[in-house]
């Protein structure tokens, strides 16, 4: 038995050391292509059994969106039904969303913090933190940053009247801050947006959101008049808490987006 088995085993070991890795890679690639194709086929089969695209009788259009559209303006005061939905009917969901963003920022902060001595990679990143000032980028940024900031504020403040809202406007504001920091260096940006400012702004926005919406829900559930005026639908100051919540969410998102940039560009925030 031993005499018979030995050459087979040695041959297999020889073959494995010689061709094992490329053969495994080819097998892996073939298997993954087959998996993806079969997955796509199953999904396409499912798509062919779905109701047609753009059909008014689509079962997804049931009593829930009907209620949102027909009574949304009376309930929330917001013309933008999506804003009224995510910041009034399902406000705690949005709160948890903002908390997830905050948690991601905290996790990135924990992962990228370095306690030990600086490695070669860290010193390379520190060298690149403030590269030579680039005149072209600085001129373009000085033109574009105010306009982008203005546009972000417009999108946040008109979130209950037109497309937009806290998340998209906050992302625009964060992009403007990132453009400023990449043009003029993070050192100069740190003069007015320090790490502590970012941290406190995010925490303050989340606290304000939780308190305001918690009060509104508590009052509403117990039948107390919350004392929040709805205003006339369509005016800039209307829709009760929604503009304030949009501002809170927008500031938090802008700070988190900028914090991501700071953390990834400097490796470690000092």
């Amino acid at each position: 038995m031993k005499m018979q088995n030995k050459p087979v085993g040695r041959g297999w070991v020889n073959w494995k050391t010689k061709h094992g890795k490329p053969a495994f890679r080819r097998l892996y690639a073939a298997l993954s292509v087959v998996t993806c194709l079969s997955f796509a086929c199953v999904l396409l089969f499912m798509v062919s059994a779905l109701p047609p695209f753009g059909d008014p009788g689509n079962p997804a259009f049931n009593e829930v969106p009907r209620k949102y559209i027909e009574e949304g303006v009376q309930d929330t005061g917001a013309l933008n039904i999506v804003a009224g939905m995510i910041l009034d009917y399902r406000a705690f969901d949005t709160f948890a969303e903002a908390c997830v963003l905050f948690t991601a920022a905290a996790a990135v902060l924990i992962l990228l913090r370095s306690d030990g001595p600086l490695s070669a990679f860290d010193s390379l990143i520190q060298e690149m933190e403030d590269p030579r000032p680039n005149v072209i980028l600085m001129q373009t940024a000085s033109l574009l940053v105010p306009i982008i900031l203005l546009f972000g504020c417009y999108v946040i403040l008109n979130g209950h009247l037109s497309p937009g809202g806290g998340f998209s406007g906050g992302a625009i504001l964060g992009a403007a801050l990132i453009l400023y920091a990449s043009a003029y260096g993070t050192k100069r940006a740190r003069r007015f947006i320090h790490y502590n400012v970012l941290r406190r702004t995010i925490a303050l926005c989340l606290y304000f959101y939780a308190l305001a919406k918690g009060y509104a829900f508590y009052a509403g559930a117990n039948g107390i008049d919350a004392g929040i005026p709805k205003g006339t639908p369509g005016a800039l100051f209307s829709a009760g808490l929604i503009p304030l919540l949009n501002i809170a969410v927008g500031l938090a998102v802008a700070c988190v987006v900028y914090l991501f940039y700071i953390l990834f560009s400097t490796g470690e925030f000092r």
């Binding site: 680039n134 072209i136 980028l137 373009t140 033109l143 574009l144």
Partner: peptide, 16 residues
Amino acid sequence: VLIWLANPVAGHLIAY
């Protein structure tokens, strides 16, 4: 106007 301001600068930065 925005794209003509931003796109060449981005390309310049990558090349730089």
